[in-house]
Design a protein around this nucleic acid. Structure first.
Lengths: 153, 153
DNA sequence: CCACTTTTTGAAATAAATTGCAGAAAGTTC
DNA sequence: GAACTTTCTGCAATTTATTTCAAAAAGTGG
């Protein structure tokens, strides 16, 4: 909540300008409970009568991902979705379960998340590879779709 | 090696036809030591004077991914790459480390891989979500690029 | 509020991936 | 191995997420 308060000075310190569009985009991500695609953010802002172009949304998201304020989730043949990432305290990786039938994205439980991140830590040391904050997606079938699928097929 | 021997009857049993193109595509994946993009496979086959279109490559790869014979690695703003997956004995997830600077893809060590897969097994049970065989990518900086980056920046 | 620089806009371009369709193979039956 | 059905392929056209570009606007520092 009001995460923009943290990002604004960070942007400023790195020499980036605090534009209305950037603030609005961060605000949308901050308010959102689920993962947002670039286009969804665009629609949201247009609905609120803000002058934005889709190109700006993409550029801003790229910037925020680069600076680790936002995580990008790449999905196959579907637009990428984004979520805020708290660089100070958040875990390195955030694990999502994505159903290939209904495309629902759910977060993994927090205790499992801790275990995943411990393992990522080990991998970093072992491979001398610095893994950056990001979301990883595990694809499969959610309980509901598995049942439907078993009947339907 | 000669993995096609296993896939051929499996395709046949499911009612898919054993076409020259499908066999050649599997053969390329089988011989490849690194991950292949659809276009690379296309070029390879054309070089060998085989009649194939890029559409067939994509259709075949989609089919093989669907049947879990092949894993797809989605990369941001770059073509997806593919690798053979042995459905019989292979682990559910294959973890790759992808450097965001040089784009090199390296496999995670096998012991860490086992640990990741154990964790994935736990996640499946806990969330009642059936995670399917797939590759997951951890993005970051490899040792070499980290050093260069530290100097260059 | 002026001068300077970065950012945004809107439209057009790009490129990976997909699709429709007619002809060509593969599998099947006799 | 001829005749028939089904699936597959190649080509070209299409889709769609994302990027590029020149001109316009907005942020910033004095």
């Amino acid at each position: 909540m009001e995460y923009i308060i943290n990002i604004r000075p960070a942007l400023y310190n790195k020499g980036y300008r605090i534009t209305g569009q950037r603030q609005q985009i961060i605000r949308i991500l901050d308010k959102a409970t689920d993962h947002q695609s670039a286009y969804k953010i665009y629609e949201e802002l247009r609905k609120m009568n803000h002058r934005v172009s889709i190109a700006t949304i993409y550029r801003t998201l790229d910037l925020l991902v680069e600076l680790n304020f936002v995580r990008r989730i790449d999905r196959h043949k579907q637009p990428s979705v984004y979520e805020l990432a708290d660089p100070g305290k958040g875990p390195t990786v955030k694990v999502h379960l994505i159903c290939r039938k209904c495309n629902q994205v759910q977060d993994i439980s927090s205790s499992l998340s801790v275990m995943f991140n411990d393992l990522v830590g080990k991998a970093q040391l072992y491979h001398e590879f610095s893994i950056e904050p990001q979301a990883i997606s595990l694809r499969g079938l959610c309980a509901k779709c598995r049942v439907e699928s078993a009947r339907g097929n």
